[in-house]
Write a protein that binds this DNA or RNA. Structure first.
Length: 101
DNA sequence: TGTTTGACGGACA
DNA sequence: CTGTCCGCCAAAC
């Protein structure tokens, strides 16, 4: 494993960890903040590799359409609701819950 | 080293 | 609104 891979991974972790409670961010947004504007999919890949029970708020990451696309979306929805994030018709309103950086 | 995959995104019908 | 298509590119295969 190279250092660039490592730092990319750590940057993503750092950014996800910085998402405020009650807010959500998109994969593309995280990729851009990490300096990899074209690697939204890589963000998903990195999050997928997180250990179960990680302290990172992975549940605050959704796609650009405000939808939950991960394999564990049921759990994610529960966690989001626990933070007061309401989805309308299966979507999250970015105007209210989007993470303004 | 060539091919496929994918927690994406945006354009389009 | 839903569904389809394509560009993207590191990883996995």
């Amino acid at each position: 494993m190279t250092e660039t891979q490592n730092s990319a991974q750590e940057r993503v972790w750092q950014i996800v960890k910085a998402i405020p409670p009650g807010k959500i961010a998109t994969y593309g947004q995280i990729a851009r903040l990490a300096g990899m504007p074209t690697h939204a999919r890589l963000v998903g890949k990195i999050l997928r590799a997180l250990p179960v029970g990680t302290a990172l708020p992975w549940h605050r990451v959704v796609n650009s359409q405000g939808k939950l696309t991960n394999p564990n979306r049921a759990e994610q929805k529960v966690r989001l609701q626990a933070e007061g994030i309401v989805s309308v018709s299966g979507r999250i309103n970015p105007r209210r819950y989007g993470w303004q950086v």
